[in-house]
Design a protein around this nucleic acid. Structure first.
Lengths: 217, 217
DNA sequence: TAGATTGTTAATCGATTAACAATC
DNA sequence: TAGATTGTTAATCGATTAACAATC
């Protein structure tokens, strides 16, 4: 009996979402260390840099296996690569961006995604003034050709950078066309079938928590 | 003895960050209800809409006071306004955006911030091709005039939409100039004095958690 | 009044931290 | 070997859910 949207390791262990959220930050810090030619690091050293406990780092990593060595710590390059694999960054993940406004263009321009295997292969919009232009070599297509585009390309993720009202409709259509993962920037909750994954980036909610902290001081 | 960056109510109660993060979502749902002329709602009804437990809603709200009424539920407009006050949305929060690229422009163009009291009063960049242009009526200034601008304007928040390498330096300078709250879009952790608040939007980390869920299925 | 629903206490569940034996 | 540090179990802490008396 599997719960909806559960995430499990190969051994079929359930991994807590809070652990998953921390993995990319480990990955970023390890990437920095790697860039600085650091060969090995202990959970204690890393914990100081990252402002977390060494215990948490070891607990988190051991959800996925033993990557370290007693008395030594962790090999930076090995751990970096292993976390990359866990996060699926050893694959190319093709992305379409629905909504080619500033936000869609900002995502297309972001080099950080590229370098982690996220490949933006098309932008889509209804606005004729945007259609035909290119952003970092990626073309903006008429949204009418999206269905055909999806048939011809192996798209893993649809990023939704359009107004809330349109996002719901488009997400439903894309889900019907087989898209199983959405990166949603519209300020709305998409109600999609259970097997569809949604990651929300709610910017207004983000700045509101900042505002809270300012005003509650 | 107060812990660093703690957040307390008027009664000096510590509010958990997980509760704070949920408030904007309540606010959004209540706003929708208000728009649809719904007068009152019970925690049970709201819990169904939002996919959380009624218990959690009542617990969360009661951190800040009793906003409901036994046998009735909550008045939508009243609760909406009260949560708005808790979040500091009854103030105008002036924002400067440092980095006038696509992302900075996307934030400046976002009407959702405006309607919640977040007022973008200036964009700043080093790029002469951007300086002088306006985005939704907001001017892009040379970053050299930022110091003077901050003296003449009551800026609450600096949004950092520039490369990681530059973000650290600029954040330090802005903190020295008295900015106490940062909305950081650069993929780096800013290490600023204890009394400075930072809200991070790490987009690459967001899409990596999505990737994890795709590939761990 | 009777029914509904809150505010709040108690019970449960999950996440974090501490501790330490295993071992490199 | 001695010192260091992991992997993992146990203890603590915090968050969520359940339950229900209070009361509108």
């Amino acid at each position: 009996m599997t719960e909806k949207n559960e995430v499990r390791t190969e051994e079929n262990k359930v991994i807590s979402p809070v652990v998953i959220k921390r993995l990319p930050r480990y990955y970023r810090y390890l990437g920095e260390l790697l860039k600085n030619d650091v060969i090995r690091i202990s959970s204690k050293e890393l914990s100081k840099k990252m402002n977390v406990t060494a215990s948490q780092i070891r607990q988190d990593l051991n959800n996925f296996g033993g990557f370290g060595q007693q008395g030594y710590g962790y090999n930076v390059e090995y751990l970096y690569n292993e976390i990359g694999k866990i996060l699926g960054l050893d694959h190319i993940n093709n992305i379409v961006i629905i909504g080619a406004g500033n936000l869609g263009q900002a995502l297309a321009n972001n080099q950080e995604f590229d370098s982690n295997g996220f490949k933006i292969i098309g932008l889509f919009d209804v606005n004729p003034r945007l259609i035909g232009m290119t952003v970092r070599g990626v073309e903006v297509y008429d949204i009418d050709v999206l269905e055909d585009f999806l048939k011809e390309n192996d798209v893993m993720i649809a990023a939704l950078t359009l107004p809330a009202s349109k996002a719901i409709k488009v997400a439903g259509e894309l889900a019907d066309l087989g898209i199983k993962a959405f990166w949603n920037f519209a300020p709305v909750d998409l109600n999609l079938p259970e097997d569809v994954i949604v990651e929300n980036v709610h910017l207004a909610e983000s700045i509101m928590t900042l505002s809270y902290r300012i005003h509650s001081k």
